[in-house]
């Protein structure tokens, strides 16, 4: 439970952080809230020579309004998200998912961007960010680039962030007026999601005008149920109307089988929970 020895640096700027990453190459690991990295270090699943702590970089903190979007800096904790009026007003789905993460202690430490770049398929923020069509701001030695969420998650614990790069923010288009719900299925409260369904819906007079559905832990990466989203458009927000469409949410997925559920059970749950999440999001 004691990490292997490592060097530690707490740069004050993104530039300094990038210089450290360049200098130490694959020996370097980035620390933000530490809620994933520290257990990894303590269990010695990884033993980096250099830990670059970005939590003191002022420029990465904050949640800001960028006209059509909200920018969530890499230093913003889950609790910052929950406390943000911008998120509450424009990104209900993210708020709904973050509320379900672990416990208050962890939410005060862990960061949204840290979880995204850690890319645990059972993590709760990947699916909503995917469903909300977020854009990842990645900074590296050659400057800044934006990666759409749909291209960000590459595989289990693997993202488009390359060596020497830093995820500095996620930019999420405002979904003002959309109803949202994150349905997290767990056996005990402190568990990772056995599966999760992130649904956000724009309803017009009881009819679904637009819908976004993301799935947690239904594969090696967060998934988006695009076919379900399209099929929902124009349907009345009632159980009878959406049940059949939603039941297909798990089709074609390849979720894990483990102590909490075999793959077929997870696929079944995806169908049931998508229906519930969509209906709750639609206020039905």
């Amino acid at each position: 439970m004691i990490p292997a020895p490592f060097d530690y640096a707490a740069p004050a700027t993104v530039e300094e952080a990038l210089a450290l990453l360049a200098e130490h190459g694959d020996e370097a690991k980035v620390l933000a809230g530490g809620q994933s990295l520290l257990p990894v270090l303590r269990m010695r699943l990884n033993a980096p020579g250099m830990v670059v702590d970005i939590s003191r970089i002022e420029g990465l903190k904050g949640i800001t309004d960028e006209r059509d979007s909200i920018r969530i800096g890499a230093g913003a904790t889950y609790q910052d998200v929950l406390d943000s009026d911008l998120v509450t007003e424009h990104l209900g789905l993210l708020r709904s998912a973050v509320k379900e993460i672990a416990d208050p202690q962890i939410r005060h430490r862990g960061t949204v961007c840290g979880a995204l770049v850690h890319a645990d398929p059972a993590g709760d923020v990947g699916a909503p960010v995917l469903a909300l069509e977020g854009r990842m701001v990645v900074q590296g030695p050659d400057g800044e680039r934006e990666v759409p969420a749909s291209e960000f998650f590459v595989d289990l614990f693997e993202t488009a962030v390359g060596e020497g790069e830093l995820l500095t923010a996620v930019v999420l288009p405002k979904h003002t007026g959309w109803g949202s719900h994150y349905e997290k299925f767990v056996r005990v409260s402190h568990q990772w999601a056995i599966i999760g369904v992130a649904a956000t819906v724009r309803a017009e007079g009881g009819t679904i005008a637009e819908a976004r559905v993301g799935l947690t832990n239904m594969g090696a990466t967060p998934l988006r149920a695009s076919e379900v989203e399209q099929a929902l458009v124009g349907l009345p927000a009632t159980e009878e109307a959406v049940a059949q469409v939603c039941a297909r949410a798990g089709e074609g997925t390849d979720p894990p089988s483990d102590l909490n559920g075999q793959a077929d059970y997870r696929r079944h749950l995806a169908g049931v929970l998508t229906r519930r999440a969509v209906l709750t999001a639609a206020g039905a």
């Binding site: 056996r187 005990v188 409260s189 402190h190 568990q191 990772w192 102590l259 909490n260």
Partner: peptide
């Protein structure tokens, strides 16, 4: 033993 952590062992807390 494959349920060797408190997460896999699903130890409940007061929240449950």
């Amino acid at each position: 033993l494959v349920s060797g952590s408190f997460v896999d062992y699903t130890l409940p807390t007061s929240a449950d």
